[in-house]
């Protein structure tokens, strides 16, 4: 028997909340089940990656593709480090201050950057992140290429003193959940609808009274500020930062999290992508030197053949890009040695 629509909806809703509750309980219980510190470390970094991937997705949801997701991650890391080590603030005071600083910076840079949507924006962000890294490396006060070491742990709250990975895990989990709640509230409001409208057709969005510039700027500021929150965590977790950690491949990785998980899944996509990209290379025992190469090839494969990413392909397997697969096969046939006499 078919359920009436509204009843089916209520049921679907209930299942959704049950699923969310189960995931929350699992995430909370996880460190109790895991003894290995290294795996805890990987989990923590997957959470950081998820937050960064979500910032990429937020800009993507507004029709902007950034290759500089790591820029404000770096700004956040350096800002909170300086505020704690030089200005003597507590970690907990440094966070809100850093968020304000990044928001202002993002507003300033974004005001110029998002005037150029499309390819121009991609190139601008790509250059911007490299410039940030190179500039930081030139400043002696920031430690140059050698970076800064001896960054203190977050100040203890009660008995939680951040001497263990578990404490850090709960901190980043809280940050991740906060990010998810905020992003979800945005996506499900008229702001998220305006972003999608701009992405799907800037012209039509304009005739509906939506100012593409203003909404893109909002996405840029929220995304950048969120990345800086992850940066605050990272600095006081790894307790040392170098400019090199933020340049090069990091922004590509962040993009891969979102693309691999599924670009149309603004929250779950980056989470799945970051989990896979953090754990799979470990279990395949891939040598560190090979990782960027494999990552690059993987990114190309996903873009060419699985444009929907993992979640998109699961949801609708026909999203597989068959025409590209076929041309690859043809190409392989030409390339592979074959028997000319036969």
């Amino acid at each position: 028997m078919k359920l009436p629509d509204s009843l089916a909806l209520v049921k679907a809703h209930r299942y959704k909340w049950i699923a969310i509750a189960i995931v929350l309980i699992a995430l909370t219980a996880l460190p109790l089940l895991i003894e290995n510190n290294y795996i805890k470390h990987l989990l923590i970094m997957a959470c950081v990656g998820t937050i960064l991937g979500m910032t990429f997705s937020m800009l993507f949801s507004a029709g902007l593709i950034t290759l500089g997701a790591a820029a404000f991650y770096a700004v956040g890391a350096y800002s909170s480090t300086i505020l704690v080590m030089n200005a003597g603030l507590s970690f907990w005071a440094a966070i809100p201050l850093t968020l304000i600083i990044t928001a202002v910076l993002a507003l300033g840079f974004g005001a110029v950057f998002v005037r150029n949507a499309g390819v121009a924006f991609v190139i601008i962000t790509l250059i911007f992140v490299q410039v940030v890294v190179l500039a930081v490396a030139q400043v002696e006060f920031l430690g140059g290429w050698g970076g800064i070491i001896g960054i203190p742990r977050p100040d203890p709250i009660g008995k939680v003193n951040f001497a263990t990975k578990t404490d850090y895990y709960y901190l980043i989990l809280a940050m991740l959940l906060l990010t998810i709640v905020v992003f979800n509230a945005l996506y499900s409001s008229r702001i998220g609808r305006a972003w999608r409208a701009i992405k799907l057709s800037p012209n039509l969005a304009g005739t509906l009274g939506i100012n593409p510039y203003r909404y893109r700027l909002l996405a840029f500021v929220v995304g950048s500020t969120t990345a800086s929150l992850a940066g605050c965590f990272y600095a006081h977790y790894s307790q040392s930062i170098t400019p090199g950690a933020f340049g090069g491949w990091l922004s590509i990785y962040v993009q891969l999290y979102a693309v691999l998980g599924g670009l149309e899944f603004y929250i779950l996509g980056p989470a799945i992508g970051a989990l896979v990209m953090t754990f799979v290379p470990e279990y395949l025992r891939i040598v560190k030197e090979w990782e960027p190469i494999i990552t690059g090839v993987l990114l190309l494969i996903v873009i060419l053949f699985f444009p929907g990413g993992i979640l998109g392909t699961i949801r609708s397997p026909q999203a597989l890009n068959m025409s590209n697969l076929q041309s690859l096969l043809k190409w392989l046939k030409v390339l592979l040695p074959h028997n000319k006499n036969g």
Partner: peptide
């Protein structure tokens, strides 16, 4: 999506639902 310009509640309230 066409109703965008009709909303009188500030965006902040839309965000807070």
């Amino acid at each position: 999506s066409g109703f965008h310009r009709h909303y009188r509640e500030p965006a902040w309230n839309a965000f807070l639902h």
